[in-house]
Nucleic acid binder design. Structure first.
Length: 903
RNA sequence: GCGGAUGUGGCGGAAUUGGUAGACGCGCUAGACUUAGGAUCUAGUUCUUUCGGGAGUGGGGGUUCGAGUCCCUUCAUCCGCACCA
């Protein structure tokens, strides 16, 4: 109620308008039609010009249309694109649709409407909305991930991934036919050789654990499972299920993905999140002999130096050796524990069980550094998915092991004398009553029997010495471990890219030939999933079954690719979007890549950006693209929030039930006083701002300008509804002044106006490069206020200002430009040059401070000698008052800045 | 717990290398025009004051002629990750 009322009133202006009224609706319609008709923003592949590639993260075209968050990033890139074009660059600035996705499929299940029809409708709506904002995209380059002409090449890339292996020595992906099969494997026969090859492919087909919602009969992505283990859509508990899945070996590229982060201009936070996700840690893998067995238990540790402090071992409940390790006597307890751990999902293991739990397996291992017998336990604080799924526990120097050992009264011997000044803490650690993970010098860390002795060494030395000893004695090796895991690359859904894969009745898997692409989706009448966790494609009988020339029968892959697939490479397709011979021309790719500026939401900090970097590196290794990294500069726009209201107890109140009285807020029904808070826009809070409403009420230029004026692009900021009025007033002022013949004169330009104009050209240029749009707009307001006050301007100055305004408020700028007698688009004009000499001053108004406090101001010529300045300032009446005519202690004069007198 | 960021008027936010804190905008106050004003224009607007000043950028301390900015410390909020061995 609060949010809407004003917009609606202003959106129905008096019909009785003067001819000078800023009729934004007419103006914007006129220029949008003009741009469309003249293809103003079409990008030619003119290799003679310097290029600039500015990219938005393309949207998923949802049924609810744009929200105000979309235009934020899009306006920013549009301003940069228009600016760069005016600066003489050949600018690539495309838009498209990431249009595969669940909502269209869900809608299909409910209504039987083909997803392609829903998608088409939504794309049309998005395109209309985006065009209504005056964003200058080259629509001839529009791409859509669901278009067979597009996903043909997504499938083509998948085939490349399948046919690539990673050469760890060269740290480079190579064609699979360059893979040499070792002689001893060759000798075992063709099946072994085949298995060897399959194990090397970047894409492979294998069993994988997935989340399955028995209610929706659908597999869920991890992010669709809530913290309590329920499906976010229906609230039912999801299950673990083993299904054959396509996986991609992204961990092989971990080092390359880490290295590449060093050379890109990205927000530090995003780089850190990616590093964190890859999770590289260095240490050693150590083999422990299991007592009374020829099995060894391998662990990964970052602290091989603490081996002397290892007093027990822990394996995860899913560890493959657990059954063998468990003795008869302990079997019941271990089985019960494993069953119980299985009930807890991986998600709530961390949350619910702050208390450590576990049971003894009944078996012992031998600590390789001193051959001491140590018990092997099973506990769910050790995860199967990380390292080897087993650890050596060093309770005195690892907090988790310390907690566990304390809970189960296991010994906590100290082997590292802490280098801390805290005497009490040090005592505690030495006694095994506290845990120390920092540096220090080793004690009790020598064994005559095995010959290892690190007593007295520091952490760094101890690690090096121990690894060397382990390797010499063949008990372990230096090792690097990564958190990142193989990428589960298939979904049991209809509305995604089909895999170009056939599973034959004899077990062979073949991929389609390039010339058989695209493999299209079959049209279906029903989109319900298959009964056993299969994709709806399992019901497409006609499509599904194939027979080869020899009569062998096969089934097509019924899984489809995840939504990430299309977005992994779309920036490449924009380069050559209608090419039906190859994904893009190499020549064009060399010219346009890399992307110079990529703007989008921080929610894609890890997955999309990591996945697409991975694909890009594979394509680079195969010689398909010319750069190692796809995105040179990345920038995250901050989320736009909205005001919302809550009661004293914190209950949220829908905005249509809120009433304002004298700056306070009340519930319209209960009369409760309410607190104004800032929250994400949501349907339930009824605080969603619809860009269409703003465009209707104030115009697209106002929406663009306001989104940029709101604050720094990367900041999270609330939409303050009244703020739109501020920029609307500004545009109104610009219109009324610059489209009024009576404001123009033919004489010399006023010096002050000229100076401000050049300052504006300079500042706006700098600010656009730095993406500081809010301060650029403020500078344009300052200039406008000045000329309105002066009342007159020359056509030349007005033309320069119009061009500065152009990237921000393109419709109004075109109108002014046209009024000034130009009959080509302002988008094609040159950015005005500023003259540095115009900005020079010959005198400066110095603030004079006495003891650090501003006391008065004085105008002084810049070429005045120091001595004279001193005399002049000290003889000022206010200065005399403070100095009593005495010589000051100090006299500081910073040229062009400030004068400070210390008395 | 770890990692990243942010704290400036009533509000959104400005402030290259330390150099006039609060640009620009909203809101508010007063006035002008007006039948009217949620239109437009003009002036004012950090707080406080005994009208000399005084205080002031989350809190405390430090460096400096001078600190929103640099250093130490502390608090709060937001985001991401979270038993990663």
């Amino acid at each position: 109620m609060l949010n809407k009322s004003k917009i609606q009133l202003i959106s129905h202006p008096d019909t009785d308008v003067e001819h000078m009224e800023y009729k934004f609706a007419n103006i914007e319609k006129r220029w949008q039609d003009y741009w469309e008709k003249n293809k103003t923003f079409r990008t030619e592949d003119d290799f003679s010009k310097p290029k600039f590639y500015v990219l938005d993260m393309f949207p998923y075209p949802s049924g609810s249309g744009l929200h105000v968050g979309h235009p934020e990033g899009y306006t920013a890139t549009d301003i940069v694109a228009r600016y760069k074009r005016m600066k003489g660059f050949n600018v690539l600035h495309p838009m498209g649709w990431d249009a595969f996705g669940l909502p269209a499929e869900q809608y299909a299940i409910e209504t039987g409407t083909q997803p392609s029809i829903t998608t088409q409708k939504n794309c049309d709506n998005f395109r209309r909305q985006i065009k209504s904002l005056g964003l200058g995209y080259d629509w001839d380059r529009e791409v859509n991930t669901t278009d067979p002409g597009y996903f043909k090449w997504t499938q083509w890339i998948f085939i490349r991934l399948y046919n690539t292996w990673f050469d760890e020595n060269l740290q480079k992906g190579r064609p699979i036919d360059e893979l040499e099969i070792p002689a001893e494997i060759e000798a075992e026969g063709s099946e072994a050789a085949n298995n060897f090859i399959e194990d090397k492919r970047l894409a492979y087909y294998d069993d994988a654990q997935v989340w399955w919602c028995p209610n929706c009969k659908i597999v869920c992505a991890n992010e669709e499972v809530m913290n309590d283990g329920n499906h976010e859509k229906c609230g039912n508990t999801v299950e673990r299920k083993n299904l054959k899945q396509w996986m991609l070996r992204i961990p092989l590229y971990a080092e390359r993905l880490l290295d590449g982060l060093g050379n890109v201009d990205w927000p530090e936070g995003v780089k850190d999140m990616q590093r964190n996700w890859i999770g590289r840690s260095t240490g050693a893998e150590v083999d422990f002999q299991v007592e009374g067995s020829d099995e060894t238990l391998r662990v990964f540790t970052t602290r091989p130096d603490t081996l002397f402090g290892a007093t027990y071992m822990v394996v995860s409940p899913e560890h493959p050796l657990l059954e063998k390790l468990t003795t008869e006597e302990e079997k019941n307890r271990v089985d019960a524990y494993v069953a119980q751990a299985g009930l807890k999902s991986e998600l709530d293991r961390s949350d619910l069980s702050k208390e450590k739990s576990g049971v003894f397996t009944g078996t012992y291992a031998l600590n390789p550094v001193n051959n001491k017998q140590i018990p092997i336990w099973v506990a769910d604080y050790v995860l199967m998915g990380y390292g080897t799924g087993a650890i050596m526990a060093v309770p005195c120097h690892d907090t988790r092991d310390f907690e566990f050992a304390t809970a189960f009264s296991l010994p906590i011997p100290c082997i590292l004398d802490p280098n801390t000044d805290d005497k009490e803490l040090r005592e505690q650690v030495l006694k095994g009553k506290a845990c120390w993970t920092g540096d220090g010098s080793y004690v009790n860390s020598a064994s005559k029997e095995t010959g290892l002795d690190i007593n007295g060494q520091s952490k760094e030395q101890g690690i090096a010495t121990t690894i060397k000893w382990l390797e010499e004695n063949k008990l372990g090796t230096e090792a690097i471990n990564y958190k990142i895991r193989d990428w589960l690359f298939s979904r049991q859904r209809y509305w995604g890219e089909p895999f170009p894969v056939i599973h034959w009745e004899d077990g062979e898997i073949t991929l389609l030939e390039d010339d058989a692409l695209p493999l299209q989706l079959p049209e279906m009448e029903k989109y319900e999933p298959g009964s056993h966790g299969e994709s709806p494609l399992a019901n497409a009988e006609q499509w599904l079954h194939v027979t080869d020339s020899k009569g062998r029968k096969g089934r097509r892959e019924t899984n489809t690719m995840p939504q990430w697939a299309g977005s992994c490479w779309y920036y490449l397709r924009y380069i050559d979007p209608r090419n039906d011979q190859e994904p893009f021309s190499g020549e064009k790719e060399k010219y346009w890549m890399p992307v110079d500026l990529y703007i989008g939401g921080a929610e894609h900090a890890v997955l999309h950006l990591l996945y697409s970097r991975f694909w890009h590196k594979v394509l680079f290794d195969l010689g398909i693209v010319s750069t190692d990294e796809p995105y040179t500069r990345l920038f995250n726009q901050g989320m736009i929030l909205a005001f919302a209201y809550e009661t004293e107890t914190g209950a949220k109140v829908s905005s249509d039930l809120v009433e304002e009285k004298e700056g306070k807020y009340f519930h319209t029904e209960t009369r409760e006083p309410l607190k104004q808070i800032v929250a994400k826009m949501s349907k339930s809070l009824k605080n969603v701002v619809n860009p269409d409403d703003v465009v209707t009420g104030f115009g697209a230029d106002s929406l663009r300008l306001y989104e940029m004026f709101l604050g720094p692009l990367d900041a999270v900021k609330p939409w303050v509804e009244n703020g739109v009025k501020g920029v609307y007033n500004f545009l109104n002022k610009v219109y009324k002044f610059f489209v009024d013949p009576s404001k123009y004169h033919d004489g010399e330009e006023d010096q002050e106006v000229l100076k401000s104009l050049h300052a504006t050209i300079k500042k706006v240029g700098f600010d656009v490069e730095a993406l500081h749009f809010n301060t650029a707009i403020s500078q344009m307001m300052i200039f406008t206020n000045l000329v309105v006050k002066k009342g007159k301007i020359t056509r030349e100055s007005a033309a320069a200002f119009a061009r500065v305004l152009g990237p921000f408020a393109p419709h109004l700028a075109e109108e002014v430009w046209n009024f000034l007698g130009n009959n080509t688009s302002i988008a094609k004009a040159d950015w005005p040059e500023y003259d540095e000499s115009m900005l020079k001053e010959d005198s400066h108004e110095y603030p004079v401070m006495i003891n650090g406090k501003l006391r008065f101001k004085i105008m002084l010529p810049l070429d005045m000698a120091d001595e004279e300045i001193r005399k002049e300032v000290l003889s000022h009446e206010t200065a005399l008052k403070w100095t009593n005519g005495n010589d000051p202690k100090r006299f500081i004069h910073v040229p062009k800045k400030i004068i400070n007198i210390v008395v």
